[in-house]
Structure formats: structure tokens, C-alpha cells
Design a protein around this nucleic acid. Structure first.
Length: 421
RNA sequence: CGGGGCGUGGUGUAACGGUAGCAUCCAUGAUUUGGGAUCAUGUAGUCCGAGUUCAAAUCUCGGCGCCCCGACCA
């Protein structure tokens, strides 16, 4: 894409109504626009990042055997009444609305009930299970206090996977697989080193749930990390008997602030019983389905990457989710041949499928570099008179700042051709 | 939901109760071109509603909005 055609602009100054680093940088660089507290629009650059995150998650969910669906945003209250969760006293952050005839509806808050109820139409035999069903869909939660930019909003994109197993053992095996898939996802988006599998409160059907916590001061949670074992315990369950059970010792634990980028938990028969999700086994016996749920907030994940991977100049995207993998920057001056060469190089890159943002704007170098640092594309290729006199392209790494002068052949060897939006 | 702070051009900021200023962005022109250039000209603003006052961006009350701390977070 040509940068001259990008409708967004960068800003030199941070918006006064944002304090969090993720919102500040993402707004300054033109990735997102704040519509109201806790509600953000994704602009071209931001949407590309979101789509890349989505692609990685989708790949891992499919590898788990997940089937993708898209459930509705408007929700019938019937199934929620069966589980007792339509009551505001039970879930206090519902957005609710009404049909013209006064029928009450819920706006998508989560989907255990609708999906379980839906499944009763299809899955009835032991032969139909296990099932792993997921979606990437907008959730609405009436948070009493939105905060931290895109990390805690009232409207946000979420991947939610639900597992439907025939018994606890089958559930447990999948649960472990899902854990591994989650580790892969966080590693692939560049947060592997800072993200810990964390024991948290499990609710009524399991002793623990598992959170994936990324260490950052922007986090809301306090976790205790055993760095050697690479696991952590959420403060909410920290107790001597818990540590003993998990084989951890207090002296090995380090307290850190962290943000919950994902969570998985076992729901047992909490939803299958009231909603009538049963199957008939080999012997003709009717049994309740064991359910698990597995969530990742995409916007929160994107915000966390910005919190963790940025410097004083701007964002430093990992290649896997960067809006583009290469930022081609031409320093025009009045040299026509620089423009011609850069234009041609851009066309060649596009043709060979490289995800490239071409800064073809007629601006001074300082402004172009500042924008490039802010936007944070991992690889920068600078075309200038200086390089062209030796037939070289300047290849700069956003993270390290390292610069190499390389020829076009080497340049084409280096440009990433990863699957990318 | 409790507490605190704050609302001034698109953005960021100033103005004792007394002429709403600066910077940036945007538009036009000129000079510039390796780290957010310079000059000139132009466009554009006091969140909403009441009240006090000769006079309100400024004081009072109400509303709306935003941020932060805490509570909450299926």
C-alpha cells in the first residue's frame, strides 16, 4: 500500500484523554480511533494487525480440530433463564435491549448458553462427540469502568472456543492440548517470553482455571511466578496449601503485575444439565456433556503487544502480526531517479506478494523516519540518493536499529514472504 | 458503584471576573530535503443548560463527557 493513500495521519502529541501506552501509541500512529470510553474503531493499520492476530488464532484453533462458527450478537433470553444467568444480579455487565413488542434480548456477552442450546439440535449420540467449536466475534460488556485503552473495553473482539466432551478424561486430554495451542499463539504473536501459564480460581467444577498472563506494569493482576518451572499463581488463589499442591515453594516465587491475555476453564456439567445437552452412550444410557471454554481477547492481546514491545519512539511489531512486514521509504528530494527506482521496487514487491507499506510522500526525511519508527514496521528499506550511487538499499531493523547497505538481490532474499494480510 | 481530577480551534496548550493567545494540523505561495525545516497569508475554538454580575472560559448549581485510584470483572 502506498502511504500517500492512507487516510490516517500520525500525530506528534499524545491525546490528552489517554494515559495508557497502548492507546497513546496506537492513536498517535493511526491504528485506532476512540469512539467513546472503552470503545475503539480499528483503522486500516490497526485492522491489519487485528487480522493477523486473528489468522494466527484461527490456524491454531483449526489445528486443534476446532470448527468455526459465527453466533449471533442478539441473544434470546430463554437459554439464559434456564441456567439462571439472565439475572443482572448474576451477570451484572449485560447490555440488554428489547424488541418492539417488549421481548427482552441480551447483547452478546458470552456464548456458553446459546451454543450449548444450539448443539442439542444436532449432537445426540456418543458418535457425535467430542466437538470443538469456536468463533471470533464481538462481545459487549457493560464494564463499570473501562480502562487501559484497548485492554479493557465495553465492546471487543473475542475468540471463544468451547469443547464438548463425553467424559472428564476426554475433556482433560483436550484441555491440555488447548493449553499447548495457547502457548503457541502467544509465542507466535511475540509474547512467548513474557507470558506465563497461571493457576487461578476454577469455579465450581474444577479446582483451578488457567490464565495466560503476560508480565507488564500495565496489567491489572498480581501473579507469583516460578521462573524455572515457567508457571505462575494468581494472587487470588495464593495460599500455602495451593503452593504445596502445585509443588511450588514460596521462596522461588516472584511477584509481578500482569495482564490476562487468555483463559481456559472447565465447566463440567454446569451448562449441559440445565440446557439439556446430553448424549446417548454405547449402552443406551443418557449422559451429560462435559464442557470447557477457552477465550482470548484480540484487542487486549494487540494492546498487550504494544505495551510490551515498544520504545520511546513508537511501536515495535513482531513480523508475524505487523501491519506490513516491510516499510519502503523513499527520500525524494528533487531527484527524479530515486522516485522512479522506488516506484519500480514497490511494484516488484507487490507483485511477489510482499506485505509492503511504501512511503512515497514528498516529505522531509526526519518526518518520514519519525513516522516509520512510530508505526513500527519491523523492516525498513530506505531508498535514497546516498544509497543509489552505490546501487545499494539501506536495510534497517526497527528493533535493534542496525543498518546494512545491501544490493537489490540481497534485498529480495531478505524480504519476508510470510502469509500475511 | 465509592473517591479524586479535568472539559478552550481537528490536535496539544495559555488567559486575575474585563480584547480568547500560542503551537501544531489544514489550505495557498516561496525557500528547503538523512531525524518531526523556515517565512508569509488564510480557515478554525471556550461541552450543554440555568444562575450570580455592568461584565463569565474564569464564580455557583444541574446535566453530559473523559481520565485516574478503589470495588467489580461471567
Amino acid at each position: 500500500m502506498k502511504q500517500s493513500q492512507l487516510f490516517t495521519k500520525t500525530r506528534k502529541e499524545a491525546p490528552k484523554d489517554e494515559v495508557s501506552k497502548n492507546a497513546e501509541l496506537l492513536i498517535r500512529a493511526g491504528f485506532i480511533h476512540k469512539e467513546m470510553a472503552g470503545v475503539y474503531s480499528y483503522l486500516p493499520l490497526g485492522l491489519r494487525v487485528l487480522k493477523n492476530i486473528e489468522r494466527i488464532i484461527r490456524e491454531e484453533m483449526n489445528a486443534l480440530g476446532g470448527q468455526e462458527v459465527l453466533l449471533t450478537t442478539l441473544q434470546n433470553k430463554e437459554s439464559w433463564q434456564k441456567t439462571g444467568r439472565f439475572d443482572d444480579a448474576v451477570i451484572d455487565n449485560w447490555f440488554k435491549t428489547k424488541l418492539k413488542n417488549d421481548t427482552e434480548l441480551g447483547l452478546a456477552n458470552t456464548h456458553e448458553e446459546p451454543l450449548s442450546a444450539l448443539l442439542t439440535n444436532f449432537a445426540k449420540s456418543f458418535r457425535d462427540f467430542p466437538l470443538y467449536i469456536y468463533q471470533i466475534q464481538t462481545k459487549f460488556r457493560n464494564e463499570s469502568r473501562a480502562k487501559s485503552g484497548i485492554m479493557r473495553g465495553r465492546e471487543f473482539l473475542m475468540k471463544d472456543l468451547y469443547s464438548f466432551s463425553r467424559d472428564q478424561k476426554e475433556h482433560d486430554v483436550f484441555y491440555e492440548k488447548a493449553k499447548n495451542a495457547y502457548h503457541k499463539i502467544f509465542t507466535r504473536v511475540g509474547l512467548g517470553g513474557q507470558t506465563y501459564e497461571t493457576f487461578a480460581s476454577g469455579g465450581s467444577f474444577a479446582k483451578y482455571s488457567h490464565e495466560f498472563q503476560t508480565v507488564t506494569d500495565a496489567g491489572e493482576d498480581i501473579i507469583y511466578i516460578d521462573e524455572k518451572k515457567r508457571i505462575a499463581v494468581n494472587k487470588e488463589v495464593l495460599a500455602p496449601e495451593v503452593l504445596k499442591e502445585l509443588g511450588l515453594e514460596k521462596k522461588d516465587l516472584v511477584e509481578k503485575k500482569a495482564v490476562e491475555v487468555g483463559n481456559i476453564f472447565s465447566l463440567g456439567t454446569r451448562f449441559s444439565l440445565p440446557l439439556g445437552l446430553f448424549y446417548t452412550d454405547e449402552k443406551g444410557e443418557k449422559k451429560p456433556v462435559i464442557i470447557g471454554s477457552y477465550g482470548i481477547g484480540l484487542g487486549r492481546l494487540m494492546g498487550t503487544v504494544v505495551e510490551v514491545l515498544s520504545d520511546e519512539k513508537g511501536i515495535i511489531w513482531p513480523e508475524s502480526i505487523a501491519p506490513f512486514t516491510v516499510h519502503l521509504v523513499s527520500l525524494l528530494g528533487d531527484k527524479v531517479d530515486v522516485r522512479t527506482y522506488a516506484d519500480n521496487l514497490y511494484l516488484k514487491l507487490e507483485k511477489s506478494g510482499v506485505s509492503v507499506l511504501y512511503d512515497d510522500r514528498d516529505l522531509r526525511p526526519g518526518e518520514k523516519f519519525a513516522d516509520s519508527d512510530l508505526i513500527g514496521i519491523p523492516n525498513r528499506a530506505i531508498i535514497s540518493e546516498r544509497g543509489m550511487k552505490d546501487d545499494k538499499i539501506e536495510w534497517k531493523n526497527r528493533e535493534t536499529g542496525d543498518i546494512e547497505m545491501i544490493d537489490e538481490k540481497e534485498f529480495f532474499r531478505r524480504v519476508p514472504r510470510t502469509v500475511h494480510v
